[in-house]
């Protein structure tokens, strides 16, 4: 039933160097500021690849270089086996891009936005017309097809931007913070659509601030900080490497958390103003041990280790901007 949004191009893509995207020592400089400081990347066909990192980590700069709108300052980069420097238009013809901020034409209708965009890819009017119908259905926008974009909700605009990015049946879809600012319903609908695309074999590259999103969507991800990649792996691998299976949170109200008293109860202990975080493989056991030592927290919580813990460990708890 579901139309094949993406044709069987992934298989025929000649990706000789291994990977749809391959970067070696990639850098980007704006004046004196080094936004990306020598990163290596390999994105394989069919995978969902994520960039995590605080604001200013260099995620968007990297995305823009990969989407061939921003020339690299140094290093090597190939996308779909081609060099963005010399073959930008040829690469862009086969990419879908969802930018951080929507850049829809607000004064046109939903359908017109799809039409015009498709035409820029050299597609015929007849093809674009048929494709738009299919994509409107995909993005659940069919009943708003002939409405102007301006008054649409943020979620609808986001869905339209994603639909638009698929007008050329891209082999690689780049999404820069696709769900920032959306309500939970809209986020889940978007995730569902991205899952479907993955099932159809589209390669996804996603940047996000939401750890649950990264865990949900990505097979593999990198954490960027200060223009560099500081960790790489699947969500499970990263949690195993940088966190622990479980986290015990001990919350104190009147007395200050006493780290010394908890010494030795976990692999790693973090002291926050109002609580202790104990990174441990068995939270309940650590809690029992803490009670035995006479620690009396106002409340306690045992939870699973998450990517958020990994993220905060790697990039720190201080505000970046």
């Amino acid at each position: 039933m579901r139309p094949a949004i993406v044709p069987d191009v992934v298989a025929e893509t000649a990706v000789r160097d291994g990977g749809l995207v391959r970067a070696r020592g990639l850098t980007k400089q704006f004046g004196d500021f080094e936004a990306v400081r020598g990163i290596d990347l390999d994105v394989e066909p069919g995978e969902a690849f994520g960039f995590l990192g605080p604001n200013g980590a260099g995620k968007s700069s990297t995305m823009r270089m990969v989407s061939c709108v921003s020339p690299r300052t140094g290093g090597d980069l190939t996308v779909l086996g081609m060099d963005p420097r010399t073959q930008g238009p040829d690469i862009r013809a086969r990419l879908g891009v969802v930018p951080q901020q929507d850049n829809l034409d607000n004064e046109l209708t939903v359908r017109q936005n799809l039409h015009i965009y498709g035409r820029y890819f050299g597609l015929s009017k007849a093809h674009v017309r048929a494709k738009a119908v299919e994509l409107l259905d995909f993005a659940q926008l069919t009943d708003r097809a002939d409405a102007e974009v301006e008054p649409l909700s943020g979620g609808m605009k986001r869905r339209l931007t994603i639909a638009r990015s698929l007008i050329n049946d891209p082999e690689l879809l780049l999404l820069d913070e696709p769900t920032t600012g959306l309500d939970p319903q809209a986020r889940h609908l978007l995730w569902d659509r991205l899952f479907r695309l993955r099932q159809q074999g589209v390669t996804l590259i996603i940047t996000t601030h939401y750890m649950d999103e990264a865990e949900q969507l990505c097979d593999r991800l990198v954490v960027m900080d200060g223009g560099k990649i500081v960790a790489e792996g699947s969500p499970g691998e990263l949690i195993a490497r940088y966190c622990s299976r479980e986290v015990l949170e001990l919350r104190f109200v009147t007395d200050k958390p006493d780290a010394a008293a908890a010494e030795g109860l976990a692999d790693r202990i973090e002291v926050l103003p109002d609580r202790l975080l104990l990174y441990t493989s068995d939270g309940e056991a650590s809690l029992a041990a803490a009670h035995q030592r006479g620690l009396a927290p106002a409340s306690s919580l045992v939870r699973r280790g998450t990517l958020e813990d990994v993220f905060l460990r790697l990039t720190g708890r201080t505000l970046v901007d």
């Binding site: 862009r92 013809a93 929507d102 607000n106």
Partner: peptide
């Protein structure tokens, strides 16, 4: 304001 040209920059149009 509309950033439509930024959208076009992601297409094969130079």
């Amino acid at each position: 304001w509309n950033r439509t040209f930024l959208g076009i920059a992601s297409t094969p149009i130079t």
